[in-house]
């Protein structure tokens, strides 16, 4: 990192911004994030979206890795139940998520750090509110206990 960039990041440390990984499905929640942009719904600069075709693709492996790499929160998002572009991928996500939630909790990670939400492609405001709410919750909790040292 350049010295200039380091300086820039230093000026921002007063207001710690969590890093949140949001897994979004191509058809609904990614579209919802796009709609949030089109509607200019302002939100904290905390989320980093990773696009998958369907929320059903989201593997516990991805979620655990996200925490191990340093995510302060991980969001699993997809189409509303019944609206899945692939018939019922989100139903499977829902089932998987239940187990995932338990395991993550067992590992001592606060429940706020892993969240599931169904957001349609038109729900830009909902997407923005979700990011704002989660960010506020995580700011209260502080950085993830699993965050490796030296990671930003």
């Amino acid at each position: 990192m350049s010295a200039e960039a380091l300086a820039t990041s230093a000026t921002q440390t007063n207001a710690w911004e969590p890093k949140i990984i949001a897994f979004c499905c191509n058809w609904c929640s990614y579209g919802g994030a796009d709609s949030a942009g089109m509607g200019r719904f302002q939100q904290p600069a905390s989320a980093r979206i990773i696009r998958v075709m369907c929320s059903g693709r989201i593997d516990p492996l991805h979620v655990f890795n996200a925490f191990l790499e340093g995510a302060d929160a991980v969001l699993v998002t997809g189409c509303h139940i019944g609206d899945c572009h692939y018939v019922n991928g989100n139903d499977k996500t829902k089932i998987k998520y239940k187990y995932l939630e338990n395991v993550v909790h067992e590992l001592g990670i606060e429940k706020e750090r892993l969240q599931l939400n169904w957001i349609s492609a038109s729900e830009g405001e909902k997407f923005a509110n979700f990011i704002r709410d989660v960010t506020a919750q995580i700011k209260k909790l502080g950085p993830s206990p699993l965050k490796p040292e030296g990671v930003a």
């Binding site: 990192m1 380091l6 890093k19 990984i21 990773i50 790499e69 340093g70 030296g150 990671v151 930003a152």
Partner: peptide, 10 residues
């Protein structure tokens, strides 16, 4: 992608 959400400080 997940790994590169983060960067190591110098």
């Amino acid at each position: 992608q997940i790994k590169n959400v983060f960067r190591f400080e110098e």
